[in-house]
């Protein structure tokens, strides 16, 4: 059987619930995280990424009890992120049953922490998420703290740096496309996938299986999305969905 790339729902935690944002603002309440994770698990999802959007922005501590319950409900690979800045936090989260942690702001503020984390844990358990916003004239800039802080840092350079320091995977997230369901920032995905050897996961803007396919053809190792797995129809009714094996069967890597 042929290898099929991963398709990954990204779930945003805020104040004990799951939410979905648009352009990193306007979080809309979707439902109870345990319940939604259970549904994805039953649908045989490839993997789940959980991001606590309060922890990064407001520097609130992670809800360990909730995360522990989520981890014991999902028999699929799990990654968790949001405000992680210490080795102790990573150890706690991996101990709960998460395979991977997602580091974001800290990788810009203290890049050497990536090396420290990768040396302490397996490289494959350290994922770096790079949030990218396009400024005037389409110039790309790295954002941190949940899109609140803008850095004069080129995302491609940052990707090369964190890959060199030991990131096992890189999530490339377009802030502008977040929640738009209008397609990924494919140019950004391709530039980063070309620049590093580690798997690159596209995030931000996917609205269909065709969008996943487009990112994979431009060099992404996996395709991630939020809205497309939780909203249905023009009026964006909340409905948890995940494509069937048949629907995903045609996905393939770039050659």
């Amino acid at each position: 059987m042929r290898f099929r790339p991963r398709v990954i729902p990204v779930l945003l935690l805020s104040d004990g619930g799951l939410v979905k944002s648009t352009g990193f603002t306007d979080p809309r309440y979707l439902g109870d995280p345990i319940n939604i994770v259970r549904i994805f698990n039953e649908k045989g999802v490839d993997e789940l990424v959980l991001l606590d959007i309060d922890a990064g922005r407001l520097r609130t501590p992670a809800d360990i009890e909730l995360l522990a319950e989520i981890a014991s409900e999902a028999f699929v690979p799990l990654a968790v992120g949001g405000g992680i800045e210490t080795v102790d936090e990573i150890r706690t989260l991996l101990g709960l049953g998460f395979e991977k942690v997602v580091l974001c702001s800290v990788t810009v503020e203290r890049p050497e922490f990536v090396a420290h984390a990768a040396a302490t844990f397996a490289t494959s358990s350290i994922v770096v998420c790079i949030d990218v916003k396009r400024g005037r004239f389409g110039r790309r800039e790295v954002m941190t703290r949940g899109g609140q802080v803008r850095h004069k840092l080129d995302p491609v350079e940052h990707a090369i740096n964190v890959a060199r320091l030991g990131a096992g995977e890189i999530i490339v997230q377009s802030v502008d496309r977040d929640g738009s369901m209008a397609g990924y920032d494919l140019e950004l995905v391709e530039d980063i996938a070309d620049a590093v050897d580690v798997p690159v996961i596209a995030l931000g803007g996917a609205g269909s299986v065709d969008d996943f396919d487009a990112a994979l053809r431009r060099g992404a190792a996996a395709a991630a999305a939020g809205s497309t797995f939780v909203f249905q129809g023009r009026h964006r009714a909340v409905l948890v969905t995940y494509p069937t094996d048949d629907e995903l069967g045609g996905l393939t890597h770039a050659n």
């Binding site: 059987m1 042929r2 290898f3 099929r4 790339p5 991963r6 490839d46 690979p77 490289t123 494959s124 096992g168 995977e169 050897d197 580690v198 798997p199 190792a221 996996a222 890597h253 770039a254 050659n255």
Partner: peptide
């Protein structure tokens, strides 16, 4: 070239001999 490391993802397993750990199934 397009297969990056680490291999992180799902793979279809093909049994190479009969063994009770991997009984025959209809579904891959």
């Amino acid at each position: 070239a397009q297969f990056r490391l680490p291999f992180m993802g799902w793979g279809f397993v093909t049994p190479t001999q009969e063994h009770p750990l991997l009984p025959p199934t209809d579904e891959p």
